[in-house]
């Protein structure tokens, strides 16, 4: 469960806010819930490693919005930590996190997770393909002694 939950929370956090909101509105769900933690925006310090592999150092912060909520029907809790400052994005991510732990999971998977996953893969594939087209093919010129 933890592994699956990590996967969907990551997908929901990485997705563009406007897509999360549009897809959620398309599902048309408005479950009753109460806040365990109201949406708030803060900073998270990003760390890097010296030489890419060594000791950690602090690079700078990133804006993150978080919230937690409880579904009224079953009391399931949903959490969200989402890059950026969109409270609505965080709220939807937390609602989705809660619903995905209930028997409504299938609706959220097909209506929200699957399209986000496909779009992320397409976005990544497009940029990877453009990068691949800029890969250098070296060739050796005919040298004097070969002629």
């Amino acid at each position: 469960m933890t592994k699956k939950r990590q996967t969907w929370m990551g997908l929901l956090a990485r997705a563009p806010s406007e897509r999360v909101i549009a897809l959620w509105d398309g599902i048309g769900k408005a479950p009753e819930f109460s806040w365990a933690r109201m949406p708030e925006t803060g900073g998270v310090m990003v760390r890097g490693r010296m030489g890419g592999t060594g000791d950690a150092f602090n690079m700078g912060e990133v804006t993150v919005t978080r919230c937690a909520l409880r579904l009224e029907t079953c009391g399931t809790t949903g959490h969200a930590y989402v890059q950026g400052r969109s409270r609505r994005h965080a709220e939807i991510a937390a609602l989705a996190d809660a619903l995905l732990q209930t028997d409504e999971a299938a609706t959220i998977e097909t209506g929200l997770l699957d399209p986000l996953q496909r779009e992320e893969e397409a976005r990544r594939a497009r940029r990877a393909a453009k990068a691949a087209a800029t890969k250098v093919d070296f060739f050796t010129m005919v040298r004097g002694e070969d002629a």
């Binding site: 990003v46 490693r49 690079m59 912060e61 990133v62």
Partner: peptide, 12 residues
Amino acid sequence: LPRFGATRPIET
């Protein structure tokens, strides 16, 4: 901004 914490070191 309130500080929520720190990331794990990014894996470049």
